[in-house]
């Protein structure tokens, strides 16, 4: 959709992929009623990887990452996050969710709470961190996303880009080891996309493990170490960004890339 438009060079010095497995998905299948949404997904994500997932709408990419923190239930196969297998066991779900942060397309900030309260709610009630400490952490991350002065405003008073950065900070306050991004820039006006992408790049530079569903191919080329292309509920192709964009193998990928970059 857009060519890379980052003025600065991405600092790759901390982007290290370790051998430690962060997420392992084996033969995962999911149905909505009779409709087979995810077909035989196999994916291993190591600690420190930055993966961009692309594909046409309805290809199951959002559903797949929503399975990783069990916002959606899978019906066959295994999902293991940081050594914890996702099952109907509530304890496991709680454990996974406290280690996996998620950023949504529509921000989903809590409109009745201030920015600061949005950021401290989960640390206080889930992590059971003293309030003072939680506020300090929240202010630290709000500074990182460059909106500390808005801390006492309500989400409705912020622009879309600012809200999405708050949403990222809110997730970071839980100190997650993995971050999931579900089309974080799709609902934003063009001039706000950059500020959100910059925040995400900074996060990548610090070595965060990231899975990102996005159409921002510039971001994929600059940051990702792997691009996954999905269609009809299955992984069709994956490769490093350079080869993925310059030498796509499957016909579906070529078609998709020509549609998204072609004009």
């Amino acid at each position: 959709m857009t060519e890379p438009h980052f003025e600065r060079e991405v600092d790759r010095s901390h982007m290290k992929v370790s051998d430690e497995v962060a997420i392992r998905i084996e033969n995962m299948n999911k149905w909505y009623g009779a409709f087979h949404v995810l077909r035989d997904i196999n994916l291993t994500v190591n600690q420190g990887e930055r993966i961009v997932i692309a594909g046409p709408s309805g290809s199951g990419k959002s559903t797949m990452i929503r399975c990783i923190n069990r916002l959606e239930e899978h019906q066959a196969g295994k999902i293991i996050v940081d050594g914890t297998e996702l099952s109907s066991d509530l304890k496991n779900i709680d454990k996974v969710r406290s280690e996996v942060g998620m950023v949504f397309q529509h921000f989903n900030l809590f409109p009745h709470l201030t920015i600061l309260e949005n950021c401290t709610l989960a640390p206080i009630w889930v992590r059971k961190i003293p309030k003072k400490e939680a506020i300090e952490t929240a202010m630290y991350f709000l500074e990182k996303v460059k909106i500390p002065d808005q801390a006492h405003k309500y989400p409705g008073q912020l622009s879309g880009g600012q809200q999405q950065r708050v949403a990222i900070a809110r997730s970071l306050c839980m100190k997650p080891r993995i971050m999931l991004f579900d089309e974080p820039t799709s609902a934003l006006d063009p001039e706000m996309i950059k500020e959100v992408l910059d925040t995400m790049i900074e996060l990548a530079e610090e070595g965060m493990t990231m899975l990102c569903v996005t159409h921002e191919m510039g971001f994929a080329q600059a940051v990702a170490n792997r691009v996954i292309f999905m269609d009809q509920g299955q992984i069709v192709e994956q490769n490093n960004p350079h080869d993925f964009f310059h030498n796509p193998q499957s016909e579906r990928t070529k078609l998709f890339l020509s549609q998204i970059l072609g004009h």
Binding site: K16, G33, A34, D40, N46, N225, V236, E237, Q238
Partner: peptide, 28 residues
Amino acid sequence: MSEQNTSSVAYVRDTMLPQQPAPSNQTG
């Protein structure tokens, strides 16, 4: 590149998987 996954897997699917019926304990 140092930040590349050592097990960097270029993967292409040759044949697309067909729709399969949900397992029997998932329907009916």
